[in-house]
């Protein structure tokens, strides 16, 4: 078998195993949390008898392992169950929410990834000179501020003072793409600022590392300009670490948007998860958790596979 195919299959197998482990962990954690859905539904009106009855009705007093296996079976057949609070199928809700989150993440990624890599290349070109220091300074400052802080600062200037963008990012199917983009411009800006520094710093470090190699000297002695040397000879050899950090940040754009979605009241997965946690809607929390874990694992597998593909020794064996 071709080594690349073998390594890729290995990664996929490991990913599946990891996903099972993550599902067990998420299920276990919701089990040890104090309180349950029955308590949440009854609230103040809970008496021991009514609690016991509701638990019996909802099947909450059966052994944890039985419920886990049932739940896992449901996921594998595409049935995420119904929400406890409104009895609606979770899958329908998640489909809607997930597409909204992906929409946001997609545009944040489209802007931040090329920008981060370009800034990284520029920082290497002008290493330790003012452009490098300026880029590093701004990106590090933006990563150091909490994201809700950045969000409120942007809202204050661009929504409250200048009226350029709405402070509530509500989108609906009836809106044109341009209107939708306008609606999400501020959350996209916040997310971009949050993930930029990490990717840019890694690009810079990975390329600088490669710049020490003898083949960079060869390229310089061919009379190439510094920027040509960087993108033609250094960048292809720095892809693996860069892709890794890009994927971690893409994962963050999907699973880490909770704060941003809440600040901008954006109807995505983050909002949904927060609502469910507040209402102790355990099946929804579980479903969101597993989906977040899956996104994370899949993107990391992609990063691994790209790293493998980027290695000429594996791509072209002797």
């Amino acid at each position: 078998m071709h080594p690349i195919l073998k390594l890729t299959l290995q990664r996929l197998g490991l990913g599946v195993l990891l996903l099972f482990a993550a599902s067990a962990l998420i299920f276990g954690l919701t089990e040890i949390l104090p309180g349950d859905a029955a308590q949440a539904i009854l609230g103040q009106a809970a008496t021991p008898e009514s609690l016991a009855n509701l638990r019996e009705e909802m099947g909450l007093n059966r052994p944890a392992l039985t419920r886990y296996v049932e739940w896992l079976g449901g996921i594998l057949t595409g049935d995420l169950g119904n929400a406890l609070t409104n009895k609606l199928p979770i899958a329908d809700q998640i489909a809607k929410r997930m597409s909204a989150t992906l929409f946001l993440a997609f545009w944040a990624a489209i802007i931040s990834v090329p920008l981060a890599i370009l800034l990284g290349l520029v920082a290497v070109r002008y290493q330790n000179r003012w452009p490098d220091k300026l880029i590093s300074g701004i990106t590090l400052a933006s990563i150091s501020l909490p994201e809700f802080m950045i969000a409120y600062i942007l809202v204050f200037f661009f929504a409250v003072q200048l009226f350029w963008a709405p402070s509530f990012a509500s989108i609906s199917p009836g809106m044109s793409l341009l209107e939708q983009l306008h609606a999400i411009s501020l959350p996209v800006a916040v997310l971009t600022l949050v993930v930029l520094a990490h990717m840019m710093r890694m690009t810079r470090a990975a390329i600088l590392n490669v710049m020490q190699s003898a083949y960079i000297e060869t390229a310089e002695l061919k009379g190439l300009t510094t920027f040509t040397v960087i993108y033609r000879h250094a960048f292809p050899n720095a892809i693996a670490p860069i892709v890794n950090v890009v994927m971690i940040n893409l994962a963050y754009l999907v699973v880490g948007v909770v704060v941003v979605e809440v600040v901008f009241a954006y109807p995505g997965m983050g909002q949904y998860l927060v609502d469910a946690v507040v209402k102790r809607d355990v099946p929804v929390v579980l479903a969101c958790g597993v989906i977040f874990a899956a996104v994370y694992i899949i993107l990391n597998i992609v990063a691994d596979v790209v790293s493998i593909l980027a290695n000429p020794r594996l791509r072209h064996p002797k």
Partner: peptide
Amino acid sequence: DIRRLRGAEVTYVSQSAAASFNPAK
């Protein structure tokens, strides 16, 4: 002007070709 000279009028062969070739190309 130096760049125009390097790789055109004067070229270089290093001790370790293995390290001096870009592994990705």
